[in-house]
Design a protein around this nucleic acid. Sequence first.
RNA 1: GUGGCUGUAGUUCAAUAGGUAGAGCCCCGGCUUGUGGUGCCGGUUGUUGCGGGUUCAAGUCCCGUCAGCCACCCCA
Length: 416
Amino acid sequence: MASLRSVKGMNDLFGVEALSLGAVESLARNLAKRWGAEEVRTPVLEKLDLFVRSVGEATDVVGKEMYAFEDKDGSQLCLRPEATASVARMLVQHGILRDHPRFRAFYAGPMFRRERPQKGRYRQFHQVGVEFFGEPEPSADVEVIALAAAILDALGLDDVVVELGSVGCPECRPSYREQLVAFLRQEADQLCELCNQRTETNPLRCLDCKSASCQAVYGDAPLPLDHLCDACDQHQAGVEKGLDRLGLDYRVNKRLVRGLDYYRRTVFECTTQKLGAQSAVIAGGRYDGLLGSVGGDEGVAAVGFAAGTERLQLLAREAGTEAGLSPADVAIVTDRNQGVDEALVLMQGLRASGLVVVADLSDRGRKAKTKWLGRTTHRHSLFLEADGSARLRLQGMETQAVHPEIAAILQVLSSN
RNA sequence: GUGGCUGUAGUUCAAUAGGUAGAGCCCCGGCUUGUGGUGCCGGUUGUUGCGGGUUCAAGUCCCGUCAGCCACCCCA
């Protein structure tokens, strides 16, 4: 068995685990619908190149955490590490934007990243997310953030903070980046080894280094928000104004950056202190131009976010709002294996009328069956006696004898 | 990829200074209670993660390995 265990970081889900993960997904799905998003499903397996070109080859997600392999025909495939690139690819491949120049997508499903597993982080994990395509205006950013906030709110999560920032656009980012790199090089001897590496590979990410000594230096660093071009600046102002108008709480974080290359302008993150090192629960932003990197129209705007489903679930558990297993409507028990056929007919009828029915029709003893009833959650129970009579018990009510008119029982139960 | 902690029945855990592996829960059966998680009796379950080593003898010591958890990295 040891060798047949599930793969490291990939978990079997059953009981409340499976149920509450599904509950989080449908909660997000229902809310996304209210925002006009429609559900899409894309394959779990994609061409490796899709992520190399959109997410970025230099990013950790693509560079070191991807499950990539060669298919039998020699093509390079991988398990998707995220879904945004896939959705973008889908839109281009099917020319969806011709019919729907503004398209809002919702998705839910498993993603794969080969990292060391820990609390709230698994190699196969789940995300729910939305992408709004073809909407360049700040109001779309506001709607996206409002949806993220609505999901958190619906789960009763009030210790999650929305942080907002901007990483600029191809107009203003290059010059800002140069300034930042110059600053970093000047302070190189003050910085940690990692930040010195990042200075060359991804300087923006230095800004959220966890080292206290680095942060001390970054107090004087040029920040992206202070170096936006006029257009980005106005966009940012528009987003903030919209959020204010809706009364949504957020905190402007001047040094908020992203790990994926495709972000432009707005970036935001919903964070918590309750998941150990995994503070990000929902993260997103704007990625205008992403369609260009997957072979589509460069000019198409896009905003969206992805939420870690397990992380939402874990937070709901701590908040006491996690969905639990629901009780059956009726539990049926026979006396030994007497009256099994009658029981089957009854169950068929009850189920046809929409009730959840569980039963123990085995030839086990009365004791075993009453024990079973005792630990099985249900609203009503029906003890079918060998003589054809039945005892109906409503939860919390006294036992009462009932004659075996199935129709009458059905009526009693379904009118409840 | 790096570091720390852990690894005994399905599960939660025990096992004095190394001496032939135990308990609760759960599960199964019976009795009792005229029938709802009661009480009593009985029963099943383990290559003590795996592989080496030290020893007359290792769950207990040493090495390795794998797995889990937590942290770093990174991210949702």
